[in-house]
């Protein structure tokens, strides 16, 4: 499997990674080899095997529907680059 330049650019866009043009060929090469490696799994016979959703053979524990988290906005917002009126400010997302 050989990833094209367009595919690498599309994957980078989906992951919001900024990559320069000359980084693409080596990335395409590396990613292709990773895919080839994993693709070996396709040769395994999985007839009748239930797909595994999680490596731990356990089921989901549940919590009761109770409010346990107090308002700690001020504490959490100390990490934010910009806040105003209680809102987190981010670069404008619509034109």
């Amino acid at each position: 499997m050989k990833l094209t330049r367009d595919e690498v650019e599309s994957i980078a866009h989906l992951a919001r990674l900024g990559i320069s043009g000359d980084e693409i060929p080596p990335l395409a090469d590396n990613l292709s080899r990773i895919i080839d490696f994993v693709q070996q799994l396709e040769r395994a016979d999985t007839e009748g095997v239930t797909p595994m959703a999680h490596p731990l053979n356990m089921t989901q524990p549940l919590r009761e529907d109770r409010v346990t988290e107090p308002d700690q906005r001020d504490l959490y917002q100390q990490n934010a680059t910009a806040v105003e009126a209680g809102l987190y400010l981010v670069p404008r997302v619509i034109e």
Partner: peptide, 14 residues
């Protein structure tokens, strides 16, 4: 997301 004017930024309420 609130797109009113926050100095050209968007405000996020989670």
């Amino acid at each position: 997301s609130l797109h009113e004017d926050f100095h050209g930024q968007s405000g996020i309420d989670l």
